[in-house]
Design a protein around this nucleic acid. Structure first.
Lengths: 192, 192
DNA sequence: ACACTAACGGAGGCACCCTCCGCTTTGTCA
DNA sequence: TGACAAAGCGGAGGGTGCCTCCGTTAGTGT
């Protein structure tokens, strides 16, 4: 439907989202909106029309990132054996949180931790994990007594650690460990 | 020594610290420095002479707050029975973190989590707790098998929860529970 | 009491935020 | 295909906050 939105508007909207995502990731949450607009090749007015406030833009970036992460899971599922897909997803999750935690923290402070945004994104992630877990369990490549939410909680714990001394590579190592823990005791031991 | 610093400079410095502490607490980390200077009754130049950057001011406020919290422990120790002193301190700690977490998060993102600042303030808090714990343990009003660091870690966990749904009053309740846990099994059961 | 500075204050230049409105592009319908 | 709404664009401009710089003020020591 062209009525809904013009093609150029769509393009600009998407481009802004991408540029903003990169900008927030490497220049922090305070990145200049004017700079973002310029990098996206649009005027500042265009940015503000699509995202009327800074918070709206940040929220959109957050949503987009969660979406990317979860959509990526379908691809993993399609191209890798179930346990590898799960392992890969866990690594991505940890990496994602390490980069984007600033966004979440900021949003929490602005719109509250129990908003629709967080509930829905949490639900999305937890569904994704649950489906990866159950696929791997059915294939017999991880132990059958683990639920999606258990794993999500464990991962969250891993990510909390990231704040503290030891740096982000800690998270990666612990996530690997966790995955090995899942494999341990599986009916069929998958070859790495 | 008057040579070291003039009296008015001292006054202004202290006043700025107090005003800034209040401002950051209720208007957030982005509170206008010009407003802070005005509230403190000094020019913006004076603020910048004492605290050359925003970060310097935030760091000073953080240090000051940790100091206040820990100095307060001496007073508690002097006026209350050891277990009450510990209980009171735990409540203050939780309340303090709830208000001031923004500062710590910001500082971590700017100067890193493993800086001298965090190491020294963590040491200060942990010493304070350790001394309260051992005093209460010696008095027999809490169980003897708990170390200061254990309790600090538990409290940190309580504070992490504060982010999540349930609000800050959760922290207070859990801290109370924790205190009861400490009293349980003490050689002498203190009367509340 | 006086001179010597440390300390003060705020004007000013800069960057960013966000709004507003005249101009351009796009999609549609004859 | 061509013309016309209207959807969309861009950036000037007014406002606010950051930080620097320097002329002025007022504590301090003799």
């Amino acid at each position: 439907m062209a009525r809904a939105q013009r093609a150029d508007a769509c393009r600009n909207r998407d481009r802004l989202l991408e540029v903003a995502s990169a900008a927030f990731a490497d220049r922090g949450i305070d990145a200049s909106l004017e700079a973002i607009a310029k990098e996206a090749g649009v005027g500042i007015g265009t940015l503000y029309r699509h995202y009327p406030t800074r918070d709206a833009l940040i929220e959109a970036v957050y949503r987009h990132n969660v979406e990317l992460l979860c959509d990526g899971a379908d691809e993993l599922r399609a191209t890798l054996p179930p346990d590898e897909a799960l392992a890969q997803f866990m690594q991505r999750f940890v990496g994602y949180v390490a980069t984007k935690k600033g966004l979440a923290t900021y949003l929490k402070s602005v719109i509250g931790a129990d908003s629709e945004l967080f509930r829905s994104s949490q639900a999305r992630v937890s569904e994704t994990i649950a489906s990866l877990v159950s696929a791997a369990a059915e294939a017999g490549s991880i132990r059958p007594d683990v639920e999606g939410m258990d794993l999500l909680r464990a991962l969250s714990g891993v990510c909390m650690m990231t704040d503290h001394p030891g740096g982000p590579e800690h998270g990666v190592r612990v996530a690997t460990l966790l995955m090995d823990g899942l494999r341990y005791g599986a009916p069929v031991t998958a070859s790495p």
